[in-house]
Design a protein around this nucleic acid. Structure first.
Lengths: 218, 218
DNA sequence: CGTTCCCTTGAGTCTCGTCAAGGACCGTGG
DNA sequence: CCACGGTCCTTGACGAGACTCAAGGGAACG
């Protein structure tokens, strides 16, 4: 039987995706000295959401979970990581996730690793953060919460304009939020009847009560 | 009213996250000549899942959707992208998502952009691909499908060992898959009673019918 | 003016969540 | 060795939220 707690053999580690990449390219991550291995007992915290991010982490043994929290305690784990895998990517100097040891674990820490050309990397990490935040939305939120979050996200991405056109169909919205078009339509109607939004046309939306939508997002 | 279809002003573009990064750092992405802008009419495909990936894309105007498909047609949109945003990241030379224009759109294409030190970038993209695949699981799959996918994923990450220990609690699994612990427990029991798995202890799992689990994943 | 596509609304169903009770496992201490 | 308490897991009954199926409305287009 294979146990996560066991330290993997060097060979096993080389088989693993990230370990392979890193081991084969000793000139980059490995250069980010000082290297350091830290041990974490089960359920102890490695870093918290909001912490300043100044390192990358590679699992030596054990298992690590990355997760986000809603204010009411609902939790969405974005990933489990086993030996060899790298985590701790961030886009703006702070962590957007919590990291904890699932069982006793050791983590190798690469401090200040970002000496590389960061343009692409930053864009990729931005994309990653977006995906992880979206995981929380579709994993742990109700239909109303998802739609409200969607509206607020659009508002913020579109120059804080309260009145905008939806480029996408109800089907697109449903597939984005993990719902059906009927549910999307019903929630739009509910928000309209409550006065949160106004629908000038099916895709022509005006936000009337932004705070109401924000508070629904939880 | 703000319409996605309108071409953004240069100033507006500079405000946007990725555009800002790229415009300010003309020495990197911009060097990846030849640069090229392509137009796509509404609902036309930009690239398909499985296509060889050899470029990055930046939205000039319009909206783009990135999505994955299940064999039965269920679809999960992972992201919408508006003017200035960059997409098309991949981890192993091929696209893991479909990209389509939501409405008429233009996309600037940066071919063969990856001259940078790729170690970190590859790790970040691997993480991104994982998050996007997980989006499909929790956005569009039933409880049984999620658990089956989870078991198969563990099997494949743990050296194809059919007998392994779960490092994580039922609560962790539930939070990872967007379910409750009761539902996780019920599905485990169902799989056990159908002979797909054997539970030597609550966290000591043996896969008996791997093909059955795979076929459940859809 | 008719057709088509997209969206809305309603009725019924079902999956999954909630609440509650009980069982298994484990370390501690007698 | 066994009793005890705590934690984690399982199982059942019930209910709510979202899905399915179906019908109809409305805007765009020829």
């Amino acid at each position: 039987m294979l146990a996560y707690r066991a330290q993997p053999t060097p060979d096993a580690m080389l088989d693993r995706t990230f370990a392979g990449v890193i081991a084969k390219d000793a000139g980059s991550l490995a250069d980010s000295q000082p290297r350091q291995v830290e041990f974490y007992s089960a359920n102890s915290q490695i870093y918290a959401q909001g912490d300043r991010a100044a390192a990358l982490y590679q699992v030596e043994f054990g298992v690590v979970r990355l997760f986000r929290l809603l204010t009411d305690g609902r939790r969405q784990i974005c990933a489990f990581h086993v030996a060899g895998e790298v985590f701790g990517f961030e886009a703006d100097g702070q962590h957007h996730l919590f990291a904890e040891a699932v069982c006793d674990a050791a983590v190798r820490i690469y401090r200040k690793p970002v000496r590389e050309d960061t343009t692409l990397l930053m864009a990729a990490m931005k994309e990653l953060v977006r995906a992880q935040e979206h995981l929380l939305v579709i994993g742990r939120q109700t239909a109303s919460e998802r739609i409200a979050a969607f509206m607020v996200d659009l508002y913020e991405r579109l120059d804080h304009e309260r009145h905008f056109e939806l480029a996408m169909s109800r089907t697109d919205i449903a597939d984005y939020l993990g719902l059906t078009i009927e549910t999307v339509s019903r929630v739009f109607s509910k928000f309209r009847s409550k006065g949160y939004i106004k629908l000038h046309g099916t895709r022509d939306v005006e936000i009337l009560q932004l705070d109401a939508l924000r508070s629904i997002c939880a």
